[in-house]
């Protein structure tokens, strides 16, 4: 009887904390690990030669920006991949709706349609981004990355930066 009530208490506690954790991660802040080298050097994927170890950086993403979908150029965002809803990408936001952008590797100018944005990886050599799939709807954005929290030697905030010469001054 005693062990049964203990088990019941334990289950209740676990479920409650899981529910609270999920809510916080859905609405306020969440953790995410970054794999791949598309955002090098902002995030670094460690070599995969240590199986079992944490691969890639652990980052903190806030979700308050989703209340009004207000972003700035240079923010690092996480979003659902437009061609696979189960995959989450992390890239840098380059241009917002209504802005003109010069497509790299061509001299073409493109106006970002209403409700969309242009995202690119910092490491343009190996990044699957808007240069490949075009502007993405803002509705796919799931949060803004604010800090790196692991590994310890690179803990710190992430600053906004924009590649120069891409967006003409208005």
């Amino acid at each position: 009887m005693g062990s049964q009530s203990y088990l019941w208490q334990l289950t209740k506690r676990t479920v409650t904390s899981a529910i609270i954790g999920v809510t916080i991660s859905d609405r306020y802040v969440t953790f995410s690990s970054v794999r791949g080298s598309s955002m090098y050097p902002t995030f670094q994927a460690t070599s995969t030669s240590f199986p079992g170890s944490l691969r890639g950086d652990l980052v903190l993403a806030e979700r308050f920006c989703l209340e009004r979908y207000k972003f700035s150029q240079g923010d690092v965002i996480i979003f659902k991949a437009p061609d696979n809803h189960k995959k989450i990408f992390v890239k840098r936001l380059i241009a917002l709706p209504g802005e003109w952008i010069q497509i790299p590797e061509s001299s073409e100018m493109l106006k970002i349609p209403e409700g969309h944005c242009w995202v690119e990886g910092d490491n343009s050599a190996c990044s699957l981004d808007s240069r490949f799939f075009g502007p993405i709807p803002l509705g796919l954005v799931k949060g803004r990355v604010t800090h790196v929290i692991w590994p310890p030697q690179r803990i710190g905030a992430i600053e906004r930066k924009i590649p120069t010469g891409r967006i003409p001054p208005t």
């Binding site: 979908y69 349609p113 409700g115 509705g139 954005v141």
Partner: peptide
């Protein structure tokens, strides 16, 4: 129900 691609709100 889907988030409009033209206006995320």
């Amino acid at each position: 129900l889907l988030r409009s691609p033209e206006n995320p709100l």
